[in-house]
């Protein structure tokens, strides 16, 4: 299962700005709610997080040390 951006539906106002900037079509408006479509093509560009005017989308990074 691919990690995907996280949407806080309490903050999301369904404006769709994230959908317009997502280049891999991982976001869709369904009944005025932004829905994530799981895809390995999501390259974590974080543009959806950057444009969201209500701070409803987050693209968190896991920080790990490279195993030798």
């Amino acid at each position: 299962m691919a990690e995907m951006p996280i949407i806080d539906t309490r903050k999301c106002d369904g404006c769709g700005l994230c959908v317009s900037v997502c280049h891999c079509n991982a976001l869709e408006v369904v009944n005025n709610i932004i829905t994530i479509i799981e895809t390995v093509e999501c390259d974590w560009c974080t543009d959806c997080e950057a444009v969201c005017p209500t701070g409803a989308i987050s693209c968190p990074f896991e920080i790990i040390i490279q195993e030798l």
């Binding site: 997080e49 987050s58 693209c59 968190p60 990074f61 896991e62 920080i63 790990i64």
Partner: peptide, 20 residues
């Protein structure tokens, strides 16, 4: 910040967004 939030063998560290 990266150094202080490393996840490791003991489990996942807190995940951070660029905003955070």
């Amino acid at each position: 910040i990266l150094f202080e939030h490393i996840g490791g063998e003991m489990g996942r560290g807190p995940r951070l967004t660029q905003q955070e």
